[in-house]
Structure formats: C-alpha cells, structure tokens
C-alpha cells in the first residue's frame, strides 16, 4: 500500500454539511470524498489547460451547457 500523509482541513459549517451530505450519498468517508474531489479537479484542470471544454448534457434533450472554467 502507498504511504499516506495526514493533514488538517479547516471547513466552514456549510462546507462541512456539503461534505457530510456527499459522504452519506456516496457511502464514502470524508477522506475518500476529498481524495475523489482532488482526482476530478486535477483531471478537469488538466483538460481545460489543454484547451478542452467542459459540458453537461441533458440526457433527454441532448442539450449541452458549457461549464465555464475561469
């Protein structure tokens, strides 16, 4: 197993509530949700940096909405 490092994370009440909700919904620990968020953030940042665009598509209407990454 890869060695891990520990850090303290300071969150507001609202951020902690959002994290708790995600943990409940995803059946994951807080650590697992934060690690998943980091992987996703890095992936999106990498693709956007290369000039790709990020879209959400409505499955029914096939309508696409671009997510603006600033």
């Amino acid at each position: 197993m890869v060695a891990k490092k520990t850090m303290t994370l300071n969150l507001t009440d609202a951020e902690m509530r959002a994290l708790d909700e995600l943990c409940e919904k995803k059946d994951l620990s807080k650590t697992a949700v934060m690690r998943q968020a980091l992987r996703l953030y890095q992936l999106i940042e990498n693709r956007v940096e290369k000039g790709d665009k990020l879209f959400f598509e409505d499955e029914a209407t096939k309508e696409k909405a671009e997510v603006m990454m600033l």
């Binding site: 980091l38 992987r39 890095q42 992936l43």
Partner: peptide, 10 residues
C-alpha cells in the same frame, strides 16, 4: 501513458 502522466484519476 504520456497523456496521463501524473494524473491521479487514471
């Protein structure tokens, strides 16, 4: 491999 270098997700 080059495209995914350093990517945690893949």
């Amino acid at each position: 491999t080059e495209a995914l270098q350093g990517m945690l997700a893949q």
